[in-house]
Design a protein around this nucleic acid. Structure first.
Lengths: 192, 192, 192, 192
DNA sequence: TATGAATGAGGCTTCATTCAT
DNA sequence: CATGAATGAAGCCTCATTCAT
């Protein structure tokens, strides 16, 4: 169906170019659909973008949810969450960049608000996992869970970006191990 | 002089809107200068942007350098570096967003390359501090210093972003303390 | 249809002003079409220009071809070819000027190359007629046919230009007779 | 002196780019003079252009005049005139193109009128030579001398243009001989 | 006599959006 | 449902010209 083709094309084009450089023309071409069809199915560019982002976030949330609802120990859960994230970032780097960063640029305010809400949803989704780690297993440090969640996402994204510019120097495993270490144990050996 | 007025206006406009939404018209207006004057002083939009970013990065590098060259213990250094960063991020949130993120969107390739180079410079600048902490004080964990530097920047930025959307819930000190904890000790109490 | 209106307007505007002085704004206005429509139908100014020139050259080639393929004696053919040319030059003076001259100024290199190719095509088109005159009827002097063709075009154009500035002094027949004489017999009565 | 440097630079730049593509910036740069100096010495672009053209035409007229005033037989004179012309065209192709063709494009009307007048002057200068050939030596055909002069210029220019695009196929001597033949004897061997 | 910073009109082009079919 | 021709606002940039020094 047209709607699906458009959505798929939109993901690609937005991911490759970012919101502003993506053009409706290219999305239509990529979806093999007339430009009018875009506007028949979506109210406009920003709404289409919103839909794409929403879908993306929901997908990763679903993927992650399975782990969180499992009865794995916290440490394993964290490993898997990091793994999922890395996949997302490495698979569609620009898209996740958009989701986690560009959301603050030049989109209509109302759409932007919705997107921020979505991001918040995702952050608090991760935060719940951390809270669990704090209460149930007494494993996580007593920090604000939301800040911690935000911090994890930031770490993962910047790490991935660096990795993508230097993928000859590290393996995917290096990256995964590094991220896990930094997130869970931090940079210092001890603080005395 | 015109050049300065333009540069100042450009910082503002780029910071508020991001690269693509910023218009040369608005920059000219904000600088109270004719549009032609922009092009008399800078070859074009992307070059102007590059100049702005370069200046920003150099400024924060200068600010931070003082600490790094001091004889303070590593822990103090890290605290101050975090402090400077937080200042930068909180003072001109969008600008630092640009510096550390938008550097990957739709700018002419050559300018983009220079910007990436600048960012790399900054990252390795931080990396040197970490290396020092690894060698001299045996304080820092044996991880790749560049990845660690990238990771720190990511943590700080995402944390700031979250803070800025929820500044009624945390104080600046909370933020600072949190960032320091996450960066140096990580999320987990122990890994047993 | 828009495309035709634009093409017609483009001929007019390019003819009246030459390539550089012609503005897309005026072409749009003259075609009673929005500026965007120009770009919907043609990739840009230089491509539009190319299309116009191509069309013009093809038209005169068609007109002339009939004569060339006829079984008229060479002398008659030449008279008619000169007649067609004169018509073209006098009807749309600036346009032919463009076709035969401005093709060397400030147009994108690739378009320019195509235009030169077109002009070459036309020249060798005339050259074939001359070759025929050399072989079949032993009428034409043994000179390089391509140079001769170029030379004929040059004679006709400069003659027309002069005529157009002094049309009170000569009749159309004068012009035609003169051109025929100069081209076929040259300036000198004999060379002894 | 500045004026001379400017004039020299202007010839170069106008010759290389044509009137519209030539920019005052480049002329100033080429003359190693500030842009203001251009306007200190000349009222504006079109006036500067006029001066350049005037100078160019006067120069070739001077060069040719020597031959015309000599007591050489007509045939020799014609050969030399053709030689001078060819030199002019081949040395600074674009410049002569401008002088003899672009003079009809987008320059202020008053300057344009003056330029046309100049061109006319040159044409009638050649025409006088032809008249002489008609009267004194009874060598030249009884055609309108001005038209003939115009025709000669056209032949030479288009021939040169063709030569310049195919300089691997003809020698300078070929060109000279060809032009002389076409101009003096025309294309046909006889007309019976 | 010369400078060069500043100007602003005008040009080309892009692109989200509309609408008649 | 879908189309695609048409739109026009908005953006970037060029360049002849001016003027205070």
């Amino acid at each position: 169906m047209s709607k699906d083709k458009i959505l798929q094309a939109a993901i690609e084009v937005f991911s490759e170019n970012g919101y502003h450089r993506a053009s409706m023309d290219e999305i239509a071409a990529r979806a093999q659909v007339a430009k009018g069809t875009l506007y028949y199915n979506f109210p406009g560019k920003s709404q289409l973008f919103k839909t794409v982002v929403k879908q993306g976030i929901e997908e990763i949330m679903q993927r992650t949810e399975v782990e969180l609802n499992s009865s794995l120990p916290m440490k394993e859960k964290m490993e898997r969450v990091i793994g999922h994230h890395l996949n997302l970032f490495l698979e569609s780097r620009h898209f996740s960049h958009i989701v986690f960063n560009e959301i603050s640029n030049g989109i209509e305010q109302d759409v932007l608000d919705e997107l921020k809400e979505l991001k918040r949803t995702y952050i608090s989704f991760l935060a719940r996992m951390i809270e669990e780690g704090q209460c149930e297993e007494n494993l996580c440090r007593d920090v604000d869970p939301n800040l911690a969640a935000a911090s994890i996402v930031g770490t993962l994204e910047s790490t991935c970006n660096y990795y993508l510019s230097h993928h000859d120097m590290y393996s995917r495993e290096d990256l995964e191990r590094f991220a896990f270490t930094m997130i869970t144990q931090g940079l210092f050996i001890s603080l005395d």
